[in-house]
Design a protein around this nucleic acid. Structure first.
Length: 344
DNA sequence: CCCCAGGGTGGAA
DNA sequence: TTCCACCATGGG
């Protein structure tokens, strides 16, 4: 399926730094985009920070991302400004040092791939650079917890991920820390994924395993990737999807309720993991994954001292946070984790 | 030794 | 209905 290079009214999502055609580098103009928070907030598990840039795999492509302005310190401010100009940003290309340091106010994401790319829309979609974030934030309830959460990680976005990768990753996520989920996913990719092209000198990289490969794997091989008791669920879910019992591609075409019920027929997939897939991959931005962090955050921020069952919290979440409740949830999740880290 | 981690499940109460 | 032990494994 071919998507037009520049979507009609969108703010020129993928403006290449070369006038036309195939290139390994592009500039995605953005406003209010917190790349670090987005890539480390427990949505995706394949991004690594190296030398000031984020490296990961999207689909079958190796990608390196950084906010414009995050150049290495030894490069002069002058050359920085010159580059910004050549990228067509004009006088707006000059960034204040404060914005540069934080990165989130920068006006572009610089993306590099290992292989030449003609159409960059896949990356614009994945990063959701065309989303009107201010419009989303405006729908959040105007209360103190949400104001604090948004202030703590403004510019945080929801990614639009591949449903199978998202589902499989979260089947492996139960009672695991994010670092350990990253480790499991890395092992699955190394052992069951396809090698992808990387820049000269880089270590090998692999795509996320096709569901047919996981369906055909032995349980012991999956357990060897540290999946533990999740291994049989991962394999059985892959087999059910391969048999067509659940159609991941059609989830976004049905109602949230219907899509959620379909996902929950898969072994190892309950309400929480289903909502993760609905929110992170299928575009249901009102799906509200209620995990241990968000549960604690809701109880502490909205019901201090009072007893609230998980059921009632779920009901509260569904009604209080509006049409982009899932988005609000991601801010609360990241906010809660940041503070837990600070409290050590 | 303890407790906890972006949970789900089956059986008991 | 809700509650609870258990499921592997690593980190603190």
């Amino acid at each position: 399926m071919t998507v037009s290079f520049i979507k009609s009214s969108s703010s020129n999502a993928a403006a290449s730094d070369e006038t036309a055609g195939v290139t390994r580098r592009t500039i995605l103009p953005v406003r209010d985009y917190n790349l670090a928070a987005t890539l480390t907030s427990g949505q995706a598990f394949r991004w690594q920070l190296r030398e000031g840039a984020w490296e990961g795999i999207v689909g079958s492509r190796w990608v390196r991302l950084r906010m414009e302005g995050d150049w290495p310190r030894h490069e002069s401010c002058r050359s920085r400004r010159k580059q910004a100009h050549s990228f067509g940003l004009g006088s707006q290309g000059h960034l204040t040092s404060a914005a540069t340091a934080r990165g989130r106010d920068a006006r572009a994401i610089v993306a590099e791939t290992a292989e030449p790319v003609n159409d960059w829309q896949w990356l614009a979609d994945y990063l959701q650079v065309e989303l009107d974030l201010a419009g989303v934030l405006a729908t959040f309830p105007d209360d103190e917890p949400m104001r604090a959460a948004v202030a703590a990680c403004r510019g945080l976005r929801l990614l639009r991920q591949d449903p199978w990768e998202c589902l499989a990753s979260f089947i492996c996520s139960s009672t695991k820390q994010i670092v350990q989920i990253q480790q499991i996913v890395a092992l699955l990719c190394e052992r069951f994924g396809e090698p992808v092209r990387v820049p000269r000198g880089r270590e090998a990289a692999f795509s996320f395993p096709a569901l047919e490969r996981i369906a055909a794997a032995r349980e012991s091989e999956l357990r060897a990737c540290k999946t533990g008791f999740r291994a049989p669920n991962l394999r059985a879910a892959a087999r059910m999807i391969a048999r067509g019992e659940v159609d991941l591609a059609r989830l976004s075409a049905s109602s949230v309720t219907e899509a959620r019920a379909g996902l929950m027929r898969l072994p190892g997939v309950g309400r929480k993991i289903a909502d993760c897939v609905l929110l992170f991959a299928s575009g249901f931005q009102d799906a509200f994954p209620l995990d241990v962090w968000v549960t604690k955050a809701l109880r502490r921020l909205y019901f201090p001292g009072r007893r609230r069952s998980l059921k009632r919290l779920q009901k509260f979440a569904a009604t209080h946070f509006g049409p982009f409740g899932g988005y609000a949830q991601q801010y609360l999740f990241h906010y809660a984790r940041i503070h837990a880290k600070l409290k050590k």
